[in-house]
């Protein structure tokens, strides 16, 4: 059994990480479960732990030049708009009202759908991404938002797209001397968000299948779109070819015969990249069927949004 250490700031944490290779530990909602022993006993960790949940540098929500930066250890409750958690974050000056107001509904809803209130006060986006489960809800939302992960080490930082950072369940590109510091993504003014998670129990259930979609709209026309499917493969799946089919869509395209053809093609292209498996939570057949239903629901939501924008 290793030692657990609780550094005072990021600089100390990075030195400890570099020297010991200790396991970064944020909210613990995954790690404590994975390493649990019998009831009445504490967990059993083979490696030393490096607690990072309290590090000020990892708890900030910043709005900077049209981009939102979310610290790796910002509790999900803050992202999910829990008023008490947000008040605490404001009081500790970890976030400003403006920065919190920029959190897109896609991320807010995904954070809200994660666990139950007592898990959301502890769970963090850094942990959700480091866990790299394709069923990770906030991971899926961050991929849809085209977020980059900022990885800190003793001598600097590097950035890479969140999707590239994940390699498969439990596997990431995190180097032995690095810590996830934050996530960054642009938040355009005219945005469209969609989030739907399908699970069993309303709370605490892991995702069977999910879809996070994020688009930008200019003058009633869809300018960009990303569609991120969760739990349909070893990593989050971006249906980019399907999304491309829909670029330039405006309200009328949802009714026209050309538009309908393009939507049908987009759905076929989405179906091609979705390759779920059977496991204890669901079957491949169910997941694929539901994933495509979510795709249809997202398109209906998009049509409604474009209609309302056009009406303005």
């Amino acid at each position: 059994m290793g030692m657990s250490v609780r550094p005072v700031d990021l600089a100390e944490a990075l030195i400890l990480r570099d020297e010991s290779g200790a396991l970064p530990f944020a909210g613990g909602t995954d790690l404590m479960v994975r390493h649990r022993a019998k009831n009445g006993m504490g967990p059993s960790f083979q490696k030393s732990l490096l607690f990072v949940d309290h590090l000020p540098e990892l708890r900030r929500v910043k709005w900077d030049h049209g981009e939102l930066e979310i610290g790796a250890a910002v509790p999900m409750a803050v992202l999910a708009d829990d008023p008490r958690a947000r008040k605490d974050a404001l009081r500790r000056e970890e976030a400003s009202e403006e920065a919190l107001s920029k959190i897109p509904s896609l991320l807010r809803d995904a954070a809200f759908d994660l666990g139950a209130p007592a898990l959301r006060t502890r769970a963090t986006p850094g942990g959700n991404v480091a866990n790299a489960s394709p069923a990770g809800d906030v991971l899926t939302a961050l991929v849809a938002l085209d977020a980059r992960v900022i990885l800190a080490h003793r001598n600097g930082e590097r950035e890479l797209p969140v999707l590239d950072f994940t390699l498969g369940p439990g596997k990431t590109q995190l180097a032995q001397n690095e810590l996830i510091r934050a996530f960054r993504f642009p938040v355009p003014e005219t945005r469209w968000c969609y989030w739907r998670k399908v699970g069993t129990r309303r709370a605490n259930a892991l995702t069977k299948v999910s879809l996070g979609a994020f688009g930008t709209i200019q003058n009633g026309t869809l300018e960009s779109l990303s569609l991120a499917f969760g739990a349909v493969g070893p990593r989050i799946v971006l249906a980019d070819d399907a999304a491309k089919m829909l670029l330039g869509f405006s309200e009328k395209d949802f009714e026209s015969s050309d538009g309908k053809t393009r939507m049908a093609q987009a759905q076929k292209l989405a179906a091609q990249v979705i390759s779920p498996i059977d496991d204890q939570r669901s079957t491949a057949h169910y997941r694929k069927t539901v994933a495509l239903n979510l795709f249809e629901e997202a398109l209906r939501a998009l049509a409604k949004n474009l209609k309302e924008n056009t009406d303005d």
Partner: peptide, 8 residues
């Protein structure tokens, strides 16, 4: 803040 004390 509400937490599960078995996970802290």
């Amino acid at each position: 803040q509400l937490v599960n004390s078995c996970l802290v």
